[in-house]
C-alpha cells in the first residue's frame, strides 16, 4: 500500500495491527454489501471475500502504489487492500456518481488505476495474460515496479493460466502469481475436477519458484509475500504464492450452497483470519479494547460509506455513451427524448 512498508519488518505487532484493520475493513465491506444487495440497493451479483481477507491484505501490504495488481471476480478485498477507497467502491456497487468505475462496471469491474489496481474481471484467467503484459510494459518503460495477479484455484484449469506462467518465465518478468485456494469453484469442489498435486506443483513444472502458505494466517502471508516480492523486485523473475483458505460464503451472496455438507462452513469458519489475528495481537501485547475499537472503526467507516453511497445520485443516463471509443462513438437514441 505504501513505500514505508518496505522498511517495516514482518511480524512486528504494530504492523500486524494495521493488517488487522485492513482485514476488518474488507470484512465490513463484504457484510454490508450483502445487506445492501438483499435490500435491493445493489444489482447483479457480488462475490464476497469473507474468510480470505488475510491473503489480499498480507500480499498488498508489501506492494507500492506504483506496483500493479490484477484481480478477478472476487475483487473487493484486493481492491481495498491495494488502497482503493471503500466509499468509491460502495458507490460503484450501488451504481452511483463517484463510483470507482463511474458506475459503469459494478462489483465485478472495480478498478482504481490511481493505486495500481488494474481491474477486477468477469472472465476467469484473463487477468493472468494481461498481467504478464503489464510486466512487459514495466520492463519496456524501465520503471521500478512489479505486477501481482490474483487467481482462484478453479481458474488454474483454464489454458491462459499455463500460457501466462510459461510466458512469465520465458521473459523473466517481474511478476508474482497469487493463487487463492478456497477449495471451491462455484458449486464444484475444485479437487474433484483437478488432476495432480495442485497449483504449486503446476507452477514448479515451469521452473517457477512456488511456495505454499496458510492463507488464513495474515502474519505468514505477509512474511512470505515480503520475501517473494523482494525477490521479484530484485530481478529474481516470476514467483508463485499459493495460499490455502476457505470460501466462507456462497459463490455469490445469494448462493444457498445446497452442495456443501452441513456443518462444513461453521467448522471451517473457526479458522477465519480475523479472529486468529486478534488472538495473535492480544498474545503480543494489545488490549482487547484496542482490538474491538479498531474493528468498530472499520464498520463505522463502511457504514459511512454506505450512507454516502445512498446519498449520491445516479449517473446521468447520457454518460452511458461516454468512453466507448474516440473514433465512431455510439449514436444515442433519437425517438424517445434520449440524448441528442
Amino acid at each position: 500500500m505504501s513505500n514505508e512498508n518496505d522498511t517495516q519488518r514482518t511480524n512486528e505487532p504494530a504492523r500486524i495491527f494495521e493488517l488487522y484493520k485492513t482485514m476488518c475493513l474488507i470484512r465490513a465491506f463484504e457484510e454490508r454489501s450483502e445487506d445492501e444487495f438483499d435490500a435491493g440497493f445493489i444489482n447483479g451479483s457480488i462475490h464476497q471475500y469473507i474468510g480470505e481477507e488475510a491473503i489480499g491484505t498480507g500480499v498488498c501490504a508489501n506492494l507500492r502504489d506504483t506496483d500493479y495488481i490484477l484481480s478477478n471476480h472476487r475483487g473487493h478485498g484486493h481492491s481495498i487492500a491495494k488502497g482503493a477507497d471503500p466509499e468509491s467502491m460502495m458507490k460503484e456497487l450501488m451504481g452511483r456518481v463517484g463510483g470507482t468505475s463511474g458506475a459503469k462496471g459494478g462489483s465485478m469491474h472495480i478498478a482504481d488505476f490511481s493505486v495500481g489496481m488494474l481491474g477486477a474481471n468477469g472472465v476467469l484467467a484473463d487477468g493472468l495474460t494481461m498481467g504478464v503484459g503489464a510486466a512487459q510494459a514495466i520492463c519496456l518503460r524501465g520503471v521500478d515496479a512489479i505486477v501481482t495477479v490474483f487467481v482462484g484455484d478453479g481458474t488454474t484449469n483454464r489454458g491462459p493460466f499455463y500460457e501466462a506462467l510459461n510466458w512469465a518465465m520465458v521473459y523473466e518478468l517481474p511478476i508474482l502469481f497469487v493463487c487463492e485456494n478456497n477449495g471451491y469453484a462455484s458449486s464444484t469442489v475444485t479437487r474433484s475436477i483437478t488432476a495432480g498435486e495442485g497449483p504449486v506443483a503446476r507452477a514448479k513444472a515451469f521452473g517457477m519458484p512456488a511456495f505454499d502458505v496458510d492463507g488464513n494466517d495474515v502474519n505468514a502471508v505477509d512474511a512470505l509475500a515480503a520475501d517473494l516480492i523482494a525477490r521479484v523486485r530484485g530481478g529474481g523473475g516470476p514467483h508463485f504464492l499459493h495460499a490455502r483458505t476457505y470460501r466462507v460464503k456462497g459463490h455469490i451472496s445469494r448462493d444457498k450452497m445446497l452442495y456443501r455438507p452441513e456443518g462444513e462452513t461453521e467448522e471451517r469458519f473457526k479458522d477465519e483470519p480475523i479472529g486468529r489475528c486478534a488472538a495473535w495481537l492480544i498474545a503480543n501485547g494489545f488490549e482487547e479494547a484496542e482490538i474491538v475499537s479498531a474493528r468498530d472503526a472499520a464498520y463505522a467507516q463502511i457504514d459511512a460509506a454506505v450512507a454516502a453511497a445512498k446519498d449520491a445520485s445516479f449517473p446521468n443516463k447520457n454518460l452511458a455513451y461516454a468512453d466507448v471509443q474516440d473514433f465512431g462513438p455510439p449514436e444515442p437514441w433519437q425517438q424517445d427524448g434520449g440524448a441528442a
Binding site: 444489482n43 447483479g44 460503484e92 469491474h109 449517473p315 449514436e331
Partner: peptide
C-alpha cells in the same frame, strides 16, 4: 446503441 453494457440502472 453500439456500446458495452453499462452497470448503473439509468445507463443500463
Amino acid at each position: 446503441p453500439r456500446m458495452p453494457v453499462p452497470y448503473a440502472e439509468p445507463m443500463e
